[in-house]
Write a protein that binds this DNA or RNA. Sequence first.
DNA 1: TTTTCTTTCCAAAACGTTTTTGAGAAAGCC
DNA 2: GGCTTTCTCAAAAACGTTTTGGAAAGAAAA
Lengths: 341, 341
Amino acid sequence: MKRRSASTLRDVARVAGVSIPTASQALNGRSGVSSETRTRVHDAAHKLRYTPHAAARRLITGRTDSIAVVPGSNMTGIFSDRFYRPILTGVGGVFESAGYRMLIAPAPRVTSAAPQFVRMVRAREVDGILAVGIVGSRWIVEVTESDIPVVLIDNQFPELAVPAVVNDDAWGAVLATLHLAGLGHRRIGFVGAINDELWARETRTGYAQALAQAGLLYDPAIEILVANDVESARQGGHTLLSLAERPSAIFAASGKMAIGIMKAARDRGLAVPQELSVVGTGDSEFALMTDPPLTAVNIHTEELGQRAAQLLLGLIHGNPAPASIVVRPDLIVRGTSGSSR
Amino acid sequence: MKRRSASTLRDVARVAGVSIPTASQALNGRSGVSSETRTRVHDAAHKLRYTPHAAARRLITGRTDSIAVVPGSNMTGIFSDRFYRPILTGVGGVFESAGYRMLIAPAPRVTSAAPQFVRMVRAREVDGILAVGIVGSRWIVEVTESDIPVVLIDNQFPELAVPAVVNDDAWGAVLATLHLAGLGHRRIGFVGAINDELWARETRTGYAQALAQAGLLYDPAIEILVANDVESARQGGHTLLSLAERPSAIFAASGKMAIGIMKAARDRGLAVPQELSVVGTGDSEFALMTDPPLTAVNIHTEELGQRAAQLLLGLIHGNPAPASIVVRPDLIVRGTSGSSR
DNA sequence: TTTTCTTTCCAAAACGTTTTTGAGAAAGCC
DNA sequence: GGCTTTCTCAAAAACGTTTTGGAAAGAAAA
């Protein structure tokens, strides 16, 4: 009596005293069935706790109501990445209200998950794909061959015409740099990431551009590239702060690097923001942990995710693919940036 | 020529010049097919880029090779929760090597996702369920009715006999408190979470127990319960540190609360660890951001996830359900705890 | 009364696999 | 050459649903 095998549409039809197709019609709300039998079928279904077998339904309808989320190779993990996490929250919210499920390959990186994902796509397990971060173009080609809609987040393949949603990293750097310039700083240092990912390059570009815009000289001596972690940035900070003409403000391209800079300042007994202004990039959880709280470029990560999800839903429903979407960050001024002198 | 509809087993059979069942047998490596036809079938399948239709296969085999991950109501979000994130990383690793996929309802909390999940389970979309954090017992009952294996993480229902994997929160508190006692501290304060979740209660229990074990007096005046965030803990810290007989050490039940305490100490000009020792709880990403790095109870989150995943895989393959698994944390001594005086 | 139109339902086919059963052919044995 | 045995393959059934093409029954129109 424990193991009551799951009830099927046939059972419902039998209990309601109708044929299988009639039961199906009734439950799916299609016309051509009297309201009396309709309620009888619904009652039977409810009594038997009937739920349609997903695989059977998929087989005939061709829809899966699921989308696959693919972690790019630059994610530290689909669950552990600080930057991409809130993006996925945004994605999830949109798909939830649309009644979709997210299928997540447990593989930490797309490089290892690639064959698995291609198989998933070919097996028609999903209606669409959301690739988050860096994925190889070879992989994209293989996937798009299957006529399944794909949307990229924080990545672009202009030559392949794959729709994408990206953050305007250069704009963020411009905001940060102009903010510091507006406070009267003339020597604004930059600590960037030494990798060659898009955001690292773009951030650097924005910094240089903003300097020009503010009429400040670009000085390679106060620009330094380090690995994207606290300790490397701390060392980089010491390099910058030990200069004869040390910068009065530093813009760090990530939250971790900003924290490293603040540690370096504290090591040297420099008060923030009185003797050194620091601007970072990142979420508020990070920013509020420092003392004082970090002035930072705020990337609308959740919005990135939402926009991408909406775009993908549109493609699934047959809408034409729009051009890429660019989302601009803004700057949240907290306690680490102050006027020069 | 762009829209080449996906090839099916029938196509493979036709190209190879055999019947459909023979093609199936050959591809699935079953005996009773000559090696010559077998290679012919494989060649055809490869040429046509054949991949079995997942839904069709599921319909007949009954297996889905997927498991559902259910976010508990105390998660801040399946992607955004600091504590549960690494657990899911552990889970993912195990399922990846076992060839399983993870289905994640995008809903942020199980309370909102409950009906959706029950439907998923009833629709036989998954072979097993992993519930992470707090889920309602009513929900569990509803799900277990479907004869689908369920494993809980960081949660327990002794009366329902649902297998679970939990962290030994009390033990962590004992380690932290005894560490401080071992450094010579006689007045060890406690900042706990005011919610009534299991970990909050257990941590408090462990603290009290360790005091007794160390021969120290339990003083309600230096125990305080606050909301689990930085700012609340900061205020709580001020309360504790303004006492006439202020504690020389404080154990905080979470990383956020530990940071709040450190901010309070800095507000009052108290040097850590010279004038106040602080021990927290949490991952190293958090702990390394403070200055000096935080001495903290280290919960083996990833191991929790791995053990739970392995347990669930066992249940799916018919193993008997073992008793609950308890994983003990350890203490990582960093820079915020020093000897008394 | 006969014809035409609705309404309500059901039989059958389809989706793409896997599994079971059985038939034909080649080979071994007397 | 007749008999069994082994090997290879194909025909048919099954999984649980949705969709299509009518059929039966009753009501409206002639």
